[in-house]
Write a protein that binds this DNA or RNA. Structure first.
Lengths: 303, 303
DNA sequence: GATCATTACGAGCCGCGTAATCATT
DNA sequence: AATGATTACGCGGCTCGTAATGATC
């Protein structure tokens, strides 16, 4: 009935990641021997082999264990960080994790106000991938995060559960499909997303909803991605749209701004299904100092 | 950087629950001294007091730690159980966890077929609270679970994330509001849920969507609960409806059956917003034997 | 034969229990 | 005084490192 040892879990994931006992030992500051013994103990404890050797890799049970291990270690770390934060002196720093599309005028204004209130502080804005953000908040690496995504109006975004986090909605914007300016649909209204399922789509997982997401939202098959864009900047993505490499879904205000027009990108708002680009603020249980102020301002700006 | 010790976490939650070091020691098979030392080590490790003594209770940091501890321990146990299950011999048992409304004709038929296929086996159907089910599946206490709830059509149910679980939809039924037979709305169609926000509602958290859930679904304030019903049986709830103690939302097929009429309960289907009573099957990564068969049958019956 | 995992073994540390002490009612 | 948490202390076990062995390319 005694619980699995987190330390063993840590070395296990390291061994799997590096596919080597020796490398894992080096990384963790152990000897080969210690790693070998830890894995042996883990396997004895679980009653199954979790690794095959030569070449080193997870067994079936090992792969399953891996699925558990990573979130477990994140939560373990999150628990420590959360309690420590509560105990320690109130920090005057502000580290904000954001997805590329979550950075906007509202945030700029709010951040300005925070800087006026805390003149000495240098806020840090770090752009990160969507899925990484909740874990970073939980472990305290960032104080506050802004995540965004496609959702039905007033529906919360799906949030990987990495610990006790609070979220508040800060914005809901209409979504539109980005098109080359000459495109027959450009500027048209009343568009149904499902009608675009046969078009070529740009898959930019760090910026816009993936094809899989669109399929789920419409219940329609299709939305085959034509080109994959691995980047977090709008310029590049919009340039590809303008060049006719495919369509993509973005918040309408983004496309209505100067950038789209300058690059030769037009757009058409999506009317059906009723979808919004939602932005949510994620924070640990009680933000303090500058983080608390920023949270307050963003929450207020929602009205 | 060393992770918090799960064992310390376990004794911590035990101490908080029992509000006593000695009782916790008895329960866990330690001496008072060991418990005291574990708590001391935990506090040293975290750098904060997590308990106040005499009377024994959590500090602020302790309360926070508690929020992390329980899900952590569940996941730890789930990891062990999951891997062990994969390693061990395929079990021939079938323990099914269900919410009260998830037990229906479809399940009955499917279970019958499973029994024909596995004549020796005695399937166990255990009725449990909604929120407890995912954790029971994760730890392997039940092999399969049926959960249900209000959702937009083809939207998945929110699932507390206790580990890697798979869900498949098995049914979506229209929802209706249960009313006393004489009620002016009984039998009417095209009803909007929001129009009923001022009515008296029965809050039966184990059976039907809570008032809070209705508020979220409609975006309308109101739905103040009149009477709270703490039970898992329909008879009692419907009897209260018939006696005019309040309204409640149920799957239409349930209300259209013989039971409603016999008790003097009528109903009116809800047309707006588009809502369904969704039933989902929850299972660990790979069900086997009878559990796998039942999952297959239920999934197939969906069509 | 070189690389890398495993086993053998001894040393140090950690965590438990016993028992004495301290605190609170 | 009695109940119950803390501290002192010694023992046992666990885990690590060193070093030797074994296996695989």
């Amino acid at each position: 009935m005694t619980a699995v040892d987190p330390q063993q879990l840590r070395t296990f994931v390291a061994v799997v990641r590096l596919a080597s006992f020796s490398d894992a030992a080096r990384e963790l500051g152990y000897t080969q021997s210690a790693v070998s013994q830890q894995i042996a103990a883990l396997e004895a404890d679980l009653g199954t082999a979790v690794l095959v050797r030569r070449p080193v890799g997870p067994t079936g049970a090992g792969r399953r264990l891996l699925e558990h291990a990573t979130p477990l270690l994140v939560r373990l770390e999150a628990a420590r960080a959360d309690v420590a934060r509560l105990a320690g002196a109130p920090s005057a720093r502000l580290v904000l994790g954001v997805t590329p599309l979550a950075v906007g005028a509202t945030l700029g204004r709010a951040l300005g106000e925070v800087r006026r209130e805390y003149p000495g502080m240098e806020p840090v804005v770090r752009v990160l991938a969507q899925d990484a953000l909740p874990a970073r908040v939980a472990t305290g690496e960032v104080d506050l995060a802004l995540i965004d995504g496609l959702a039905a109006p007033s529906d919360p975004l799906p949030l990987p559960d990495v610990g006790p986090l609070r979220t508040v909605a800060v914005a809901e914007q209409p979504v539109a499909v980005a098109l080359p300016v000459g495109h027959p649909l450009a500027g048209r209204g009343g568009l149904a997303l499902a009608d675009l399922s046969a078009a070529r789509w740009l898959d930019a997982p760090d910026l816009t909803p993936t094809a899989a997401r669109l399929r789920a939202a419409t219940g329609v098959d299709g939305f085959r991605p034509a080109t994959r864009y691995q980047g977090t900047d709008l310029h590049g993505l919009l340039a590809l749209v303008a060049a006719g490499h495919g369509l993509t879904l973005l918040p309408e205000p983004v496309l209505a701004g100067a950038l789209g027009a300058a690059l030769g990108v037009g757009y058409a708002p999506i009317a059906v299904p009723r979808l919004v680009h939602r932005t949510e603020l994620v924070h640990g249980s009680l933000p303090e100092g500058p983080a608390a102020l920023l949270a307050l301002l963003l929450e207020r700006s929602r009205a």
